[in-house]
């Protein structure tokens, strides 16, 4: 609404990005479904859908970034974005909470019950005789066969150090931005991205170790399920976070963001810290205890 003057709330005109996103996502998901049903076109469709999704996401964000750089957004719009990002991260927290809940339930309740704890003695004697409750476990049927557990103090500890350091470097970058010092801003971002990439590399190595040498797989009972689903979704979030940080780095190099207005930077920073905190939860409850 150009004529409303400087301080009016920006309502974008009609946009095709949302409908394109829906078409792309649907292509991706229908493709994946067909793949799971072993229909040959599924795989191609899935990758086409994925490419489309990424492309249109890029375009959509590009539009928003350009609008932002043209000064279309006033402070109130900025605040809407902040609330939006905050509640989005909250929804992500709840998504992880479901999987942490599953881990907790298995460790504290279902595995001991199968082992006959509480009033479940007959569960053990009648259904799963001989099973002794312990953690980690691949269950009374010993799904996936003998396996070794993933210790906390090897790669995972290194990963913890990497992510915690990346939180610090990101904060350094943020301070650089606030005080208009470009050097700490740029190098802080570069360091954060590198630490993130290093983390993913270690995680990949850890998965390789687990599959190749420990016989620890997604199919290794409830331990394997919770281990890989939690760390897997977390790794996915680190990947997304690293991509977002890279975009932010490029924007910084192009001279985007000012000490006053830099919602994009802060949103990604919040996201990165959220991923950090999830990792601490993982390190404590999945690897350590």
């Amino acid at each position: 609404m150009s004529s409303h003057g400087e301080n009016s709330y920006y309502i974008p005109h009609g946009s095709y990005w949302p409908i394109f996103m829906s078409v792309s996502l649907t292509t991706l998901l229908v493709g994946f479904s067909l793949l799971l049903n072993e229909v040959p076109v599924g795989q191609i469709m899935m990758f086409v859908g994925l490419a489309m999704t990424l492309f249109f996401m890029f375009q959509w964000f590009r539009t928003v970034v350009l609008e932002s750089e043209h000064g279309t957004y006033n402070e109130q719009v900025d605040l809407s974005f902040r609330w939006g990002m905050f509640w989005f991260i909250f929804s992500e927290v709840m998504f992880f909470a479901a999987f942490f809940g599953a881990l907790y339930y298995a460790r504290i309740l279902s595995v001991p019950w199968i082992g006959g704890a509480g009033s479940e003695l007959t569960t053990n004697t009648q259904l799963w005789a001989g099973f002794e409750s312990m953690w980690p476990t691949n269950g009374p049927a010993e799904l996936g066969g003998d396996y070794k557990i993933m210790g906390a103090w090897g790669l995972p500890a290194i990963n913890t150090a990497l992510l915690l350091t990346s939180g610090v470097t990101l904060t350094i970058a943020h301070h650089g931005l606030l005080e208009n010092h470009r050097k700490p801003l740029i190098w802080g971002l570069v360091a954060t991205i590198l630490l993130g990439v290093l983390f993913m590399a270690c995680q990949a190595l850890e998965y390789y170790e687990a599959y190749a040498h420990l016989n620890l797989k997604l199919s290794t009972g409830v331990y394997g399920s919770t281990f890989f689903m939690l760390t897997g979704f977390h790794g996915m979030h680190v990947t997304i976070g690293a991509i977002m940080l890279t975009v932010i780095l490029f924007r910084v190099l192009r001279g985007h963001f000012t000490p006053e207005q830099h919602f994009g930077f802060e949103a990604v920073a919040w996201y990165w810290h959220f991923v950090d905190v999830v990792w601490l939860g993982l390190f404590i409850f999945v690897y350590w205890l």
Binding site: A102, Y105, A106, L109, S110, V111, W113, I114, L127, W128, T137, N138, G139, P140, A141, L143, L218, S219, G221, V222, Y223, G224, S225, T226, F228, M229
Partner: peptide, 11 residues
Amino acid sequence: TSFFSAAGGGD
């Protein structure tokens, strides 16, 4: 996975 299968320790 065996989140919901007792054979694997789930429920």
